[in-house]
Simulated assay, not measured.
Amino acid sequence: MRIIRTRDYNHMSEHAAAVIAAQLTLQPNSTLGLATGSTPLGAYVRLVEMCAAGKISFAQVQSYNLDEYRGLTHDDPQSYHHFMWENLFSRVDIDVTRTHVPDGSNEDAASTCANYDAAIEAAGGIDLQLLGIGNNGHIGFNEPGDEFVVGTHCVDLTESTIKANSRLFESIDEVPRQAYTLGIGAIMHARRILVIASGTAKADAVHAMCYGPVTPACPASVLQLHPDCIVIADAAALSAC
């Protein structure tokens, strides 16, 4: 695990975008694993700018998102599909037919998850997986628990995750209580992993991820075992390290 300390959120975003841009330059047909939430927004802004300037291209890229709320359709403004369309897919030269987000509208969890795993396997796996980290150490929606779940699965969101995500909804009551998420196995099979973190609220989780025991009580700690994992975090997120 390689840790890169940055000054602040903007500096972190610049470094993260540079890593993704380098991936696309070296391997234009990369399969990217993408994340949502406030943390990657700055990196996406910079990637959009680089694409508009002709410095990078997404034309040969295919992507698989980490997760999606169960019960939300793709066109729901709170869905992660909509988030990706608004913040990246509609602003770069990616073929939208080659972008993939778990189908939150499919109530059949078993088929939704199995199909998503099969699609990633058929694509040859993920070349670069972008991750954020939750305040409780979750990656994707893999919440703290008694075991690492390997495949894509439906998860009951913890109260801390629901509270953290409620800032994006009009009220906490509107936050879905379940989500489909890529499993730890698929994440760990990515050839390279990029974790980004910002702010003091993430400091304890980042410390546990980098220096704590490998335990499903902090799902991100498993990343210590990955052969090519880069952590880019600002000084606040690394303040406990």
Rank of each mutant, 00 (worst) to 15 (best):
Y80T: 06
D75N: 14
M209N: 06
S239L: 05
P176D: 13
Q129C: 07
Q78K: 15
I196H: 01
A18S: 15
N106K: 01
H226Y: 05
G199Y: 01
A186P: 11
T25P: 03
A110S: 09
P213S: 10
S79G: 04
Y80L: 13
P40T: 13
D234Q: 11
H153Q: 10
M12S: 09
Y116N: 08
A179P: 14
G151N: 14
L157P: 07
T6R: 15
A18D: 12
G54D: 11
A237N: 02
R2D: 03
N135Y: 05
N115M: 10
G125E: 10
L157H: 09
I139K: 09
A201L: 05
C51M: 02
A164T: 15
Y44F: 15
F89H: 11
A35N: 08
A16P: 03
A22C: 03
Q129W: 12
A190M: 13
N65H: 14
N142K: 01
F89R: 04
A201Q: 13
C229Q: 01
I187D: 12
T99F: 01
H138E: 13
C241E: 01
S63F: 00
S57W: 09
A203C: 10
G54R: 05
G185T: 07
A240L: 05
I184Q: 07
E121K: 14
D173F: 04
R177L: 07
D117C: 03
A205G: 03
V195K: 08
G140N: 11
C218I: 15
A119G: 02
C218M: 12
L26Q: 14
H226L: 10
A123Q: 05
L26K: 11
K163S: 10
D127L: 07
G124K: 04
E49T: 01
T99D: 00
E170D: 13
R167T: 02
G199E: 05
G37W: 08
R5V: 04
S221P: 06
A201V: 11
D127N: 14
P213Y: 08
Y180W: 06
G199A: 01
L238V: 05
C154W: 00
K202G: 05
R7V: 14
G134V: 10
R192H: 14
Q78N: 14
A205T: 02
C113W: 02
H11I: 04
G137M: 01
G71L: 02
R167W: 09
S198P: 04
Y44N: 12
V45D: 13
G71I: 06
A114M: 12
E107S: 12
H207W: 11
D93H: 08
C218T: 15
A237T: 04
R191F: 00
K55P: 04
G71Y: 09
G33S: 06
I162Y: 09
A197S: 11
L130Y: 07
I162K: 00
